[in-house]
């Protein structure tokens, strides 16, 4: 039945199928070791990828978590780990999940793996551990962003017409590009200082990021962050 499907894809689908049935992660006293063992096969937990050749980007199965404590909100991690939903419509490396069709390339959703769900106790331990991974405290400390407000129309035009963020990101369900993570939920997910610092200097966090640096000064970056706040706070 699987004849004709490339071995790599069969393996990915197999892993996805196993994960989809919700195999519980083993909880050990040493959460760090547990996270390394259970999460480390897909997520980078140290910054070694930054020293590798740029093409390592194509081999990633999941986003790096080595700076998770500088990036995520703890309460979001705790909740998401119990009910993981897709944030990146085309996966962590979109070219691996794109296939040609008569209407242009489409995302081959059959190749996207699901994240396992944890129970509340596991999610709490993992979230607590991930929040200890803070190698970029200096980047956060240097950030001057103070959350503020922006008019919906101005924010939307800035996000789309002026800065082109909607080329890769969605600012509402099914509105915007699909290669980047959805951003209408970014405010609940990410620390405000991280949002601003990452937009300003994405390669300082991940030298092989597929996020470009726009021509935005600090004030313009803060406007974008305020737009993410505006749309994020409207989400359930």
């Amino acid at each position: 039945m699987t004849k004709g499907i490339p071995v790599k894809l069969r393996l990915t689908l197999g892993i996805a199928a196993v994960l989809a049935v919700g195999v519980p992660l083993a909880v050990h006293a040493d959460t760090a070791a547990d996270v390394k063992q259970q999460c480390g096969s897909c997520h980078a937990l140290d910054h070694d990828y930054a020293k590798a050749a740029k093409h390592e980007r194509a081999e990633r199965k999941a986003p790096p978590l080595d700076f998770a404590g500088n990036k995520f909100r703890r309460e979001w991690l705790y909740s998401w780990l119990q009910n993981p939903v897709r944030l990146r419509p085309a996966g962590v490396f979109p070219p691996a999940h794109a296939k040609p069709s008569a209407d242009g390339d489409v995302v081959d959703t059959a190749t996207l793996a699901k994240h396992p769900a944890l129970d509340a106790a596991q999610a709490g331990k993992v979230a607590d551990y991930l929040m200890t991974l803070t190698p970029f405290d200096a980047l956060i400390a240097a950030e001057t962003y103070q959350p503020g407000s922006i008019a919906q129309r101005m924010g939307q035009m800035n996000f789309g017409k002026f800065k082109g963020c909607d080329g890769c990101h969605q600012d509402a369900p099914d509105k915007g590009g699909v290669s980047g993570p959805e951003l209408y939920t970014a405010w609940q997910r990410l620390q405000p200082a991280f949002i601003s610092a990452y937009i300003t200097q994405p390669a300082a966090w991940d030298p092989h990021t597929m996020m470009p640096v726009g021509d935005a000064n600090a004030a313009a970056v803060h406007k974008l962050a305020n737009y993410l706040k505006l749309i994020g706070e409207k989400q359930p």
């Binding site: 085309a90 794109a98 209407d103 242009g104 390339d105 489409v106 017409k161 080329g167 590009g177 290669s179």
Partner: peptide
């Protein structure tokens, strides 16, 4: 005709 193209102005 990339995966983002359909949503692009």
């Amino acid at each position: 005709k990339g995966i983002n193209a359909a949503q692009m102005a």
